[in-house]
Design a protein around this nucleic acid. Structure first.
Lengths: 256, 256
DNA sequence: CAATCTTTGTGCACGCGTTCACAAAGGCAT
DNA sequence: ATGCCTTTGTGAACGCGTGCACAAAGATTG
């Protein structure tokens, strides 16, 4: 089963590492803020701090784009904004469709950050006939039957899936068949797509679970701080009864 | 400036690599589906395919948790569900607050995946007095003035920020001061937090920009396929006029 | 013009994450 | 009990990403 190009083994797209690509939007945001304040130039140190990264990393990232800085001075803000925008493909118009106009779909439709960067919501699509014709964020909701024609007419290559998990793969298949080659998936499902199609996943539940893991670990550490661990971990306090793990959790039943 | 524990230099929390932790929720989801279908055991190959990862990777991931499989048979589904849940800290209750009840905040409040895994929305908080007292997803919206008391009363350690970018850092500071040590940030801002506080960022705009980058590259590749590149890249077709880059974009003004 | 100072661009080393490939382990049939 | 077959668990190699530290480059000052 091909899971598409998500998490590709770091294929350097035109020599630019994936990790760098992921940071470019961050730099762009910081630079845009500087641009609005009419700041002419910025040093790697300043910009890195604004973007929340290491300055050496930032310089290395920029070095993949070319030598756009001036030693002893820094980077020209306007010029860099343009170069990064161009590299990311934001100088052109990207029509996108949002499929699944529930709470989340509506939230995204209303999200201002969309339009500001070359992304245009070409259509909102939902399977519920009751929604068809309704306006959301000033855009009419169309029925999913029209999906293929909408994509074809508008030349859409990016699709956003905000349907329930059960419908996601089906919607995905239709999007891909209709010509979409990049998908942003908010549904809690592993999408299977043919080669050449990019999928990026945004999963609230997973993020929370990762936070919970670290939260639990922090709590355990804080506890260990109060009651310093007896050096011999294996030598349990005599007569403590049950053999319990370092988490203070009773061992579960073993598999049959 | 401390940007907290986000992107920590791979501090192996109790020996479990960060990359593995990020995949555990994926395995857990696949396993839960199997459990609901009453499947007793599963091989690493099957489970890996369901989770969309390599089977070797899955086995190595599980090896960090312990030897929970049976050679020649596979893994006991129920047992593994329990072990991963416990490892992720999902066997306990995690009260969370959502700050910023706009479209996105409301969408998250309505999201079912929350409650199913030990996460409980303790409160919805917004700065708009007009919203106070309103019900969203069956939960009353409280004014941001009450933030500290809500966190204290409910023992909240996880906060979700869905405010506009401008308010995010301020909200973050108050959350942290009140005792929150894990933050899920949906606002398009780089949050600055003290050491010991975890921040995870979900940024729609960034995801779209990354997709646009790859989309642009795919388009460029498709073009190169049609018109195979003349071997000497520097030797432009004579009389082609403007010196234009490989992206078909006119070069911008150089910095002064 | 020369000296100094600032800041970029990058060579290098190190560590994490991924993948291969296989030995060890357990079930199962005979 | 013995041998075969399946699947796990992991040692080892490799590649990407990160960060240090410094040389090169340009501005600036005297």
């Amino acid at each position: 089963m091909a899971t598409g190009r998500n998490h590709r083994p770091a294929t350097r797209s035109r020599g630019i590492p994936e990790a760098t690509v992921a940071r470019l939007p961050l730099y762009l945001r910081a630079l845009t803020a500087l641009s609005e304040r009419s700041v002419p130039t910025v040093s790697s140190e300043e910009l890195a701090s604004a973007a929340g990264v290491n300055s050496a990393k930032l310089r290395k990232d920029f070095s993949y784009l070319g030598s756009y800085g001036t030693r002893g001075v820094g980077y020209d803000v306007e010029y860099l904004v343009y170069q990064i925008s161009r590299e990311l493909g934001l100088t052109q118009d990207w029509p996108v469709v949002i499929v699944g106009i529930g709470n989340l779909g509506a939230a995204l439709a209303n999200y201002g950050g969309f339009a500001s960067r070359g992304f245009r919501v070409a259509a909102l699509i939902d399977a519920d006939p009751a929604l068809s014709g309704r306006q959301v964020a000033g855009i009419e909701v169309r029925h999913v039957d029209e999906l293929e024609s909408i994509i074809d007419t508008n030349g859409v290559s990016i699709g956003v899936i905000t349907t329930p998990g059960g419908a996601a793969q089906q919607v995905c298949d239709r999007l891909v068949a209709a010509g979409v080659t990049s998908i942003l998936n908010f549904a809690p499902t592993v999408l299977s797509v043919p080669d050449g199609v990019d999928v990026r996943k945004v999963d609230l539940s997973i993020e929370l679970q990762i936070l919970a893991f670290h939260e639990q670990r922090k709590a355990a550490e804080a506890l260990a701080q109060e009651v310093p661990e007896p050096l011999a971990a294996e030598a349990a306090p005599a007569g403590s009864g049950r053999d319990q793990g370092p988490d203070g959790d009773i061992p579960a039943v073993m598999p049959a």
